Amino acid sequence: MSNEPMKIAIDYPEAAATLKRVLGLKGSPVAIKFATTKEEIPAGMEELDKTIRHCSMVNLARTEGKIFSATSGKHECNGGAWSLGLREITPTLKSGEFYFKLGKFDSAAACKRTIDKVSHLNPGDTYATLYAPLEKTPFTPQVILIIANPRIMLKLAQSTLFRLGGRISAEFSGIQSVCSDATAQTYLTGRPNFSLGCDGSRRFSGIADDEMVMGFPAEMLPEIIEALPIIIGASGSK
């Protein structure tokens, strides 16, 4: 992973303004980057001063405009830290015991089958995760997250299909929604993903009952920005 900007320049403040205006977002789109070394963290960018979950970190950037980095020790959720490549998976998470004890599955085996398919970076791949509202990002993002209601998600989905068409295959399992589904999976596959949120993210990060989560590769931002006004203004659009 390089700290160099993308070869095709993107005006992030303008793109964020377009997303907010056209979609009527309540908060900011969130820029995220996986820093592999300390040197990849922009100069002057402070580390988060508390230990919380990745989904809560996203909410700080989304609703409060916070810009910060977070090394492994600042990540409260073991599952989130594992999926983001910050630390090894814990034995209870790997075996299925953790989610089984939370009552999420009928058996530990069912849980393990789910955990085995959770998208994650290799442990140690990430030195720190970086967060910023898109309009103020001091780094070149790799993933952009949007939390919004289903109608907005519909328009975002349509915008990803505007140029080439096809179908969208969303993957989620009701756990690790913001960390794995929307962030790690999106980065690893290079494809947008939609998720319903999970109990943890809805409980700790301010995702409302009527909101969903979308992550898309930052490289897709120009085509989404170009397509959205056309999609919204189409005669068949609601």
Rank of each mutant, 00 (worst) to 15 (best):
E64I: 03
R87I: 14
R87T: 15
A108S: 13
A170C: 01
Q176E: 14
K104M: 12
K117C: 00
G80N: 09
T92Y: 02
G65T: 06
A182V: 03
T183E: 05
I115H: 03
S169L: 10
F100C: 03
K66H: 14
H120A: 15
M57G: 15
F100I: 06
G174C: 08
H120V: 04
T137S: 15
F139A: 13
S72M: 08
A132M: 12
D181F: 01
E76G: 10
F105A: 12
S72A: 14
L84F: 08
K101A: 13
V58I: 15
S119G: 10
T126P: 01
G124R: 00
G80A: 13
T140F: 03
R163V: 09
S72F: 05
T71M: 07
S119L: 02
I147W: 00
F172N: 10
I67F: 09
E76C: 03
I144C: 10
T90C: 06
L145A: 10
E76L: 15
K66R: 14
I147N: 08
I146R: 03
G124M: 06
N59A: 15
P141T: 09
L60E: 14
F100V: 05
I168M: 03
T140H: 10
Y127L: 05
F172D: 13
S83G: 13
R113K: 15
T140W: 00
D125S: 13
A81S: 14
A110H: 12
